[in-house]
Design a protein around this nucleic acid. Structure first.
Lengths: 249, 249
DNA sequence: TCAAAAGTGTTTCTCGTACACCCATGT
DNA sequence: ACATGGGTGTACGAGAAACACTTTTGA
């Protein structure tokens, strides 16, 4: 953390902690700007999509990029501002119009190479978010007049900054994590059928799953207590399907 | 990234990118300090250890903490300084005395809550490193006179800042990752026996492995081409063991 | 010759995969 | 009646776990 080696802080070995804090002033060493960027996923009609915004200003003017913004830092001493994760939640809410903290959000990776941004040194903490399709209608993207749009992951435009790398990291994360963590339930309505959950797996993994075998994985989750049957049936073009609910255990 | 929303940057919609960059000056919004912290692991005698340093100054004076330091940021425009990962490599080399880039190093998590450090807003990008025991003698820690010491992971002192959380994140990472990625080979000399590799698994997972079953996992890696037999045999107290080498495929 | 560690064989169980087949509905 | 998707049964193979057993050394 800060000044373990004493190289950047002054020597304060003889002071009490109280004296030290009273006399301490943050030095004016150069500091980077810190931003958060969001890779926001959703699954619509068995297709994995991400939310992109079109940049209005330089650099990369007119190019598509992941939404994001700077972390608010207070005056640095009396007020230290917001946490990085809170900044990500705030940006997510601002960008989607959804209420604060209503979506799954997890830290992804921190990109800190110099010259990522030609204007100044920017270190970006990236997050990924999962938005279930039942929340989608609320999202302010989608109309063509807007500057924000959902893109099919397999058919993206050129991205600004190092956002192409960011997407690859995000994809690798969810593709790996879906096998051992219950993140698929974040991309499905509160109640769902086996086929709906399977389509999420197929969209994320980019492969098909044998419907019969998926049923049995599903049955195991049922006996685990991971999921439970809900009331009603989902009626589609074929035989009506049972409906389930994720029990957050 | 920066100013996608136009909230923090000025409007530059009518300029060319060249004009924009020529006239752009980084604004003096408050910025955080950015540091890197290192969780450095090694396995000695089937025991997982981490390197801690004793803090000389406030805050947390006299408490043990993970080594770390600030990321060097240039003047912010003409010189953007070093990358965050490079800063981690540099700190690792400084702290251990080992040559730059000789060890496995991977980003762990970024801690960005306010008030982590009472002096000022500090955002810390944590990394973990794996050091094989054959490099250990070179590490400048170990003598009691020094301010750096290796600690058994199951018997740590109270740590400074949020470093206890950091350790838990690091442990969770290596315990999960060892099952699907070849990180165990980073904690073993260039040539090693089955038992030596098994002891690394046992130290990290905190459980014992059936020696016979581990042999078969091992054989599969052999047929995979992940490892290959090396010359010679390792002589210990019992029957001499075959020696293997990791083939970085 | 005995202890200690290396290494093999065998059995059982679980899980992923493939695929044949029956079930319930709308048209 | 038949197409469509929901759901079950069966069979095979890979790998995890448990454990008896053989091999090769030092003391």
């Amino acid at each position: 953390m800060a000044d373990q080696t004493g190289k950047l802080g002054h020597e304060a070995s003889d002071m009490t902690e109280e004296e030290f804090l009273r006399t301490y002033k943050a030095k004016d060493y150069p500091k980077p700007s810190v931003a958060v960027d969001l890779v926001i996923f959703t699954v619509v009609d068995t297709v994995l999509k991400v939310l992109l915004i079109k940049r209005k200003g330089h650099p990369f003017k007119g190019r598509w990029a992941f939404p994001g913004g700077f972390v608010f830092v207070g005056d640095g001493f009396h007020n230290q501002g917001e946490g990085v994760e809170m900044a990500a939640h705030r940006e997510l809410a601002e960008e989607t119009g959804l209420p604060l903290g209503c979506c799954f959000l997890e830290q992804l990776y921190t990109f800190g190479e110099p010259d990522r941004d030609p204007r100044m040194r920017v270190i970006t903490v990236s997050y990924y978010a999962l938005i279930s399709p039942d929340k989608m209608p609320l999202v302010k993207a989608g109309d063509d007049a807007s500057e924000a749009r959902w893109f099919f992951v397999e058919d993206l435009p050129d991205l600004a900054f190092d956002h192409d790398t960011m997407l690859q990291v995000a994809l690798a994360r969810i593709r790996g994590k879906i096998d051992y963590a219950p993140i698929a339930f974040e991309l499905v309505p509160p109640t769902f059928t086996v086929a709906e959950l399977r389509s999420v797996y197929e969209a994320i993994k980019g492969q098909t799953y044998d419907a019969a075998n998926f049923q049995r994985r599903f049955r195991r989750m049922l006996t685990d207590g991971t999921i439970e049957q809900a009331e009603g049936k989902r009626r589609g073009t074929g035989r009506p399907a049972k409906v389930y609910r994720f029990t957050r255990r």
